[in-house]
Design a protein around this nucleic acid. Structure first.
Lengths: 333, 333
DNA sequence: TTGAAAGCGTTACCAT
DNA sequence: ATGGTAACGCTTTCAA
């Protein structure tokens, strides 16, 4: 490229990187012209090697099939594009091993920053990240001990508010179907919120009403089946995420149970189809796109000033979208 | 690293890249030990600069919020991980400009390969890709003129089969809500299939039954509204993708129209929630994960042997999942 | 205003 | 079997 334009690589670099003030209009023009003619784009690897910056941010999510993460990812990407960053992506599938491996690969890749929803099983590793100098933001997870920037929602109070709504409707036999409460604090938080709501209302917990198992449609269906087979089945059901909710609804549907007449149903996460389910589902809605956008903005702030900056823990509000899947238990037979 | 182990960088490279046969067990041991102690990972930028290979594949999709693309992406990623490749991702939002920009960025990034669902408006650019030597696979799109590997489904016959099913049920007033038929051939294909089915059955097209507009939930709802306001409304509705289907169902729901008693409903794409909609929706299902997995495998084949390899056009079968949203129009009032 | 030259951290060739 | 060294294509400093 430099040869083609008859100038030195230094000058090309200057012009193409906006340091044109120190270049005469004539040469500048010529360089730009040649660059366009050759459809020239500087080799980012070479630049990265020299500058130690790749303008690349890695995202490690658990499973992109979950529409929650997809929406967060869009938030990240929209901001990244605006800021001129490229996103590299990995799915951990909640496996600490895969998470570690991805992190390692991305370190070799020299990514400028990291945005992750950790499995919660690699705290030791995450604790060392600040030293490595790779800015990191945790999304939808938060552990104060990690001293990392965080963007999340308050799962405890969100779940609590949801269950309190059910209690206010008059329910006392309320069941929850939740993902495993080990690892990511999200899931434990939702169960905790459920517990708090019950306790505040003086309702005793019942172990058989708590179905804790790996998140999947299949498990959601099975859990709902177990609950509905109980001698004293619940009058309300709280599904703690999208996959479990789909499975649970399938089971409910198969058995011909009327919602909300025979069973109130409420879910965490508010996918677009919740309005066209039968009936439209009352759901806890999270500001997904904003979670992602803010995560990137936090990261970008750190990317700019390499300096201290105290770690932030941003908690975004959720909202309970009341539709028609919940009613008073009086209407049960 | 080399200094730390007291050997030359060359030897380190040899050992770490599995060319250990030419190294004595003693030095090999030492290098491995030091590498582990320092938690050493070679700088991928430097290696890429030298080898001109990044072990990175770029994916350009239109919109990752669409669960169809998410599922395809998972297929790609699962294969990529197996093969030791990293995925970088961009959303074009169906904008040819953004698509061009992404492609340009990825070229600078020196990605080894490209997997894209093109907007259909950058054929000139895509035609030049083979020369650049960057292997490219088109997913869910196919234009023989581009001479690029392709993995897709036959949208024409899939849509045709779906509409023929409606016709077999006895419908003659069949409407379609589809995305814009410019650009991506997918959408035009679905409309074409609709036309073919009508024609084969000797049913005259009616322009007012064809709602062609940009894909969005909002537009889906509006289109359904328009159709239902017709003096002679359709007895069956075919929504050509997920977003339009959600919007259309919302409208149908709001108006209290019974499906399938008053209106049969059928959609292209088979999201996980189609079974818990009201009623469970009859849908054209695509092998999403396989589309992605095959796309990556095709790419990988090219990545391995730099040699010719004639371009492939793989067409995967779709299936019509018959559920309960369609019935004979006789049951209409 | 321009460019020469020194690296950045690897890999690959070629001596030893 | 081992390692010296050039080269990859940029950016950056410094001198002209």
């Amino acid at each position: 490229m430099a040869r083609e334009a008859g100038v030195s690589p230094a000058t090309v670099s200057n012009v193409l990187n906006g340091r044109w003030k120190q270049t005469s209009p004539a040469t500048r023009e010529r360089i730009l012209e040649v660059a366009k003619r050759l459809n020239y784009r500087p080799n980012a690897m070479a630049a990265a090697l020299r500058t130690r910056r790749t303008r690349t941010v890695a995202v490690v999510f658990t499973n992109i099939l979950n529409p929650f993460y997809t929406a967060v990812l869009r938030g990240i990407q929209d901001e990244a594009r605006r800021a001129g960053y490229t996103i590299v992506l990995a799915n951990s599938d909640d496996s600490p091993d895969v998470e570690r491996e991805s992190l390692s690969t991305f370190r070799a890749q020299q990514v400028d920053g990291l945005i992750i929803t950790t499995t919660g099983e690699n705290d030791e590793l995450l604790k060392t990240l600040p030293e490595t100098g790779v800015p990191t933001v945790l999304v939808d997870r938060g552990d104060p001990e990690l001293h990392l920037d965080t963007v999340r929602v308050d799962n405890v109070s969100a779940a609590r508010a949801a269950v309190e709504y059910l209690i206010r409707l008059g329910h006392r036999r309320i069941a929850i179907i939740s993902g495993l409460t080990t690892g990511a604090p999200t899931r434990a938080g939702r169960v905790e919120g459920y517990h708090q709501a019950l306790e505040a209302a003086g309702i005793a917990r019942a172990e058989e009403y708590e179905q804790i198992l790996p998140s999947s449609v299949e498990n959601g269906r099975a859990a709902a089946g177990t609950l509905l087979n109980l001698p004293d089945p619940p009058t309300a059901l709280f599904a703690a995420n999208t996959f479990l909710a789909i499975g649970a609804m399938e089971c409910i549907r198969e058995r011909g149970i009327q919602v909300p007449q025979q069973l109130s149903f409420l879910m965490f996460d508010d996918p677009e189809w919740s309005r066209i389910a039968d009936p439209p589902i009352t759901a806890v809605s999270q500001p997904t796109h904003r979670l992602g956008a803010l995560a990137f903005q936090l990261l970008e702030a750190r990317l700019r000033k390499k300096r201290p900056l105290k770690t932030e823990d941003i908690v975004l509000p959720t909202s309970l979208h009341i539709r028609r899947s919940c009613s008073t238990p009086d209407r049960n037979p």
